[in-house]
């Protein structure tokens, strides 16, 4: 299986085709509903989104002795209304589950970004690919805080590629 790593350069992103299965290594930033709402409203972003990957995920609490708790993807479409604005700020990839809106698909194409699916409903399994967790912002949001996850060989499926091709529209 093809291996890719963050930061994803333009060449790497453009080589990905909807339907490809890949293993991703590098840093991801978790963000879901409330974090998106804040990112959009923020005068100054708590992190530079340029070239970064957002993972739509709200992990469980961390059991003793584990790096992280269960941490699978949440439904991406709830973030659709915010996505184009984050792509404009330089975000290069998103990981989640399920379909995206047409607006998101077009924005992904315009900004030559990519949307991946992670194995849905497999949070225990996904946690095994996480090597390190670092809090980044909005800790008061609990499971919805932004944290940086260092992942190794996380299995993903390319759902919308940089040409705007969508696995769900095939």
């Amino acid at each position: 299986m093809k291996k890719i790593s963050v930061p994803l350069d333009a060449k790497q992103i453009q080589s990905l085709k909807a339907g490809d299965e890949v293993l991703l290594t590098g840093d991801l930033f978790t963000a879901r509903d409330q974090a998106h709402k804040r990112l959009i409203a923020a005068k100054k972003l708590p992190l530079d989104l340029k070239g970064q990957v957002i993972y739509y995920c709200g992990p469980t609490n961390t059991p003793k002795g584990e790096v992280i708790g269960s941490c699978g993807p949440t439904t991406s479409s709830r973030m659709d209304g915010y996505t184009a604005r984050l792509l404009r700020k330089g975000l290069s990839a998103m990981i989640g589950k399920g379909r995206r809106s047409k607006e998101v698909r077009l924005a992904i194409k315009k900004h030559k970004a990519v949307y991946f699916l992670a194995y849905a409903g497999c949070g225990a399994l996904v946690s095994k690919y996480v090597r390190k967790v670092v809090p980044v912002a909005y800790q008061d949001l609990g499971p919805e805080a932004i944290v940086r996850l260092e992942v190794k060989d996380l299995p993903l499926i390319v759902a919308i590629d940089s040409k705007g091709k969508d696995i769900y529209e095939a």
Partner: peptide
């Protein structure tokens, strides 16, 4: 592909049980 995903779901249940992790982060 569907088989691979279902295999992951089965493996996830095994990992959750063995390591006492939530089956899904959405508890």
């Amino acid at each position: 592909r569907a088989k691979r995903i279902l295999a992951a779901v089965i493996e996830n249940a095994r990992v959750a049980k063995k390591e006492k992790l939530a089956i899904c982060q959405d508890t």
